[in-house]
């Protein structure tokens, strides 16, 4: 069986097995506690309405039905909500990658005065509470017709995550060797040429990290989405699920199905981009 790497040979094999069992027991608890709520949602979504409202609880759905998924996508507009979330989160990620790379490049690889004040100006905006920006933006967007538009969410989301994007890019660009630009300068490339032809092609990891984390933030946001999207067909998935009401009883089966579908992209994200997410969330820590 698997043993913990680096376990010393002086240990008796019994001790080693005991330690491995304890360690993997703890990991198993961690995994079970983390995934239990979603496993339960999946099981609920596969049950028939009659067995959902049943006590004692039936743990394994029998018979298994996809009825709830059909309801979620035919009778309720959850497909539309998912589409809205994709548009908003995707656009937000693109804007922050572009603006973050621009500012990050200037702050890490150009010489000019006032660098620190500008960096602070950008980073401090991340500490301002969202509610302090909500009310005026609501008034502004209402008078300019941006409520119930994708742009009405993309603009604030991209601004709120911009400090993070700038931070990631300037930290990444700082690590690149100076020789990169020296050679390019000698070849007669301008600064902008260096940015577009030399720096950007090698900054794919920073772009991916920024895009993924900004996407997850925009996908998950609720306060602004709830306040700005008052028309049903413009709601994002978070607002759609939060405000979904059944006609007679609270539709836990439909909600569970919609919830599970909305979680699948996140799980795939995590599985594919694990390392990039961890690097992004912990950028600059422990250095």
């Amino acid at each position: 069986m698997a043993t913990v790497d680096g376990a010393d040979e002086r240990y008796s094999s019994l001790q080693r097995i005991g330690e491995a069992v304890g360690f993997y027991g703890a990991i198993a608890v961690l995994v079970a506690v983390s995934f239990f709520p979603v496993v339960w949602i999946l099981l609920t979504s596969l049950k028939q309405p009659a067995t959902i409202a049943q006590f004692p609880v039936e743990y394994v759905p029998d018979p298994v039905t996809l009825e709830n998924y059909r309801t979620a996508f035919e009778q309720a507009p959850f497909a539309r909500y998912l589409f809205n979330s994709f548009v908003v989160a995707g656009s937000t990620a693109i804007i922050d990658v572009v603006l973050g790379a621009m500012a990050g490049y200037a702050l890490s690889r150009l010489e000019f005065r006032g660098k620190l004040p500008i960096l602070l100006f950008i980073l401090v905006s991340a500490m301002l509470p969202y509610i302090g920006r909500l009310i005026p933006l609501f008034q502004l967007f209402r008078s300019s017709g941006l409520l119930n538009s994708y742009l009405g969410l993309i603009l604030p989301y991209a601004a709120f995550q911009l400090p993070f994007a700038v931070w990631i890019f300037q930290a990444y660009f700082k690590e690149l060797p100076d020789s990169l630009e020296e050679a390019a300068l000698m070849d007669g490339l301008s600064h902008l040429g260096i940015l577009f032809r030399i720096i950007l092609p090698v900054s794919a990891p920073a772009m991916a990290t920024t895009a993924i984390i900004v996407f997850v933030y925009a996908w998950n946001e609720f306060l602004f989405a709830l306040t700005f999207m008052t028309q049903d067909e413009m709601r994002t998935i978070t607002v759609g699920i939060a405000l979904y009401q059944g006609q007679y009883t609270f539709p836990w089966g439909t909600i569970s199905a919609a919830t599970f579908v909305s979680i699948v992209p996140l799980v795939l994200f995590i599985l594919f981009f694990q390392r990039k997410i961890v690097r992004g969330l912990t950028a600059g820590i422990g250095k």
């Binding site: 979603v38 996908w219 998935i237 978070t238 909305s262 979680i263 996140l266 995590i270």
Partner: peptide
Amino acid sequence: FPWALPTI
């Protein structure tokens, strides 16, 4: 996973 799950 818990980090990525939308709060609402």
